[in-house]
Amino acid sequence: MFKLFTDLADWLTYSVLNLDPASKLGDAVHFFIEDVSKIYVLLIFMIYVIALLRASLKVEKVRDYLAGKHRGLGYLLGSGFGAITPFCSCSSIPVFLGFSSAGIPVGITMAFLMTSPLINEVAVLLLLSLLGWQFTILYMIVGMGVGILCGFFLDQIRAERWLESFAAEALQQARQAPSELNTTATEAEPERLTFSERHHFAKTETLDIFGRVWKWVIIGVGLGAGLHGFVPDGWIETHLGDGQWWSVPAAVLLGIPLYSNATGVIPVMESLIINGLPVGTTLAFCMSTVAASFPEFILLKQVMQWRLLAILFALLLAAFTVVGWIFNGFTPFIQ
């Protein structure tokens, strides 16, 4: 199925642009065209199909389901729902408040919010097609693990102390009167969706997501192509290939100012791994790029005090570093 894109890239690079297949430039351009065309087609197709299927899954339902669940199970479910529930990052504030006013502990809410950018269906399918199922499963376990453990830790340190007062009050009230589950008026909308409603949702979703990620794909693949064609073969492998301990925190720090969503960063992961960067270092770098982004952290300031925000940030960075070390440590045993 993917050969089509290789043929397209062959034709455009070698016939239309008349580049030499043996040259660095030809190699880089070929990689760029093949990956961008493949990812665009996959994205449009996958976003649409998945949006059709999950059109009826709403955060309100997730909240009602999570409210009143046992804590231990709550972290796992919170993180799992974070992975599959669609919501735009600009909704994280209302989601946070909605969960809190249903009495869901901060840790479970954060497990949901942290897993959400790391794992989404588009990222998973891209990983499957570019890096294979073993890596995809690894990535999902790690992404959910980070969300679950961070959520658990936040509840252990009683993070709700550092919420902004109105958010803390909402949580407090709900905890005292758990029977009165706040339900939203949107539930008045019909539960059963017709196909045309699903199609409308899926179409809007596809246009919206594609509109946001297409440029990240270009940047991601462009960087990948640069690495592919111009970084001397074996350079990364010689210098960083042993998974030197400092390379992991360095990769995490490097990922902070870089901001991308999971879709854009996957092509970069692909070429980093092909070029011999250890899996742990690559994972650490990519997760840091996706999840530790300032613009989204600043949004959370509306409901949290600086102190909690700083703890959260440090927690994520520490988690990614540990993930990197663990994977670098285990890689020799896997292969």
Binding site: E60, I93, L97, F166, T186
Partner: peptide, 11 residues
């Protein structure tokens, strides 16, 4: 954000 709490809006 307080308005979202008032109207119980989550999305």
């Amino acid at each position: 954000p307080q308005a979202m709490l008032t109207y119980k809006v989550m999305s």
